[in-house]
Design a protein around this nucleic acid. Sequence first.
DNA 1: CACCAGGTGGAAC
DNA 2: GTTCCACATGGT
Length: 257
Amino acid sequence: MDRLDSLDLAKTLDCGQAFRFNLASNGSWSGVAGSRALTISETTKTQILSDSFWFHYFDMDFDYESACKELSGLSPLMQRVVTYSQGIHILNQDPFETLISFIISQNNNIKRIKKIVNSLCQNLTEDNSFPSPSVLASCDLQTLRSFGLGFRDKYVLDAATKVASGLIDLPSLFDASFTEACDCLKQIKGVGDKVANCILLFAYHRFESFPMDVWMKRVMAQCFDNKKGTDLFGPLAGFAQQLLFFYARNNELVSPQ
DNA sequence: CACCAGGTGGAAC
DNA sequence: GTTCCACATGGT
């Protein structure tokens, strides 16, 4: 079975885990990951994914077919969710970019998150890549505020300063336990439980993560009797979360409040 | 005009 | 320990 079949670009790049990809009129997706620009479509993805960087970025190593099979067997609802969301892969994004992006995500909507992240990249780098920790750390609050960050300006500055100074060592978190990594990230102002879980899921591939935003709180309350994600879905919790998030946002699975 | 958005920090119980 | 609220900004 060809694992390329398990990847749906549109769902994966537009399900709210990455903020730098946009759909072109010809159906291809263009964006930047770290400092690498990419244009990819369903017809060119085979060739693109032969490159080891993009192969890893799109998480082609993971057995999504088995994961989907397992989750869809749990309940009729999960079967519908898997069918609807099938093709989503959890990306392996750059940790610093993911950290800053999800700090920006708090009390915000996806459209505006994308706008702000792109504003940072366009204004702070020459090649539209994601700003380095030191570049961001050297910005003053007024400059950051001008990019549309709002009250999150001080959080972004705190994150960039702690990473640039070495106080927070992002690569070392690949080897840390989940709770260790979580606690480390939460030293940063603006990083709470939800944002830490997003970073660990979308940059560190930690499937123990189960980010609880407003949508997931509705889903868990209305469909799963407020049980815990890890109890329901075990080692596939993070993946299940993303399938549910995508389904909930695009259907009338749950009602507000 | 209100209300919401992939929440969090900080103060007040 | 928990509960409450301000926080910038743009979209609906």
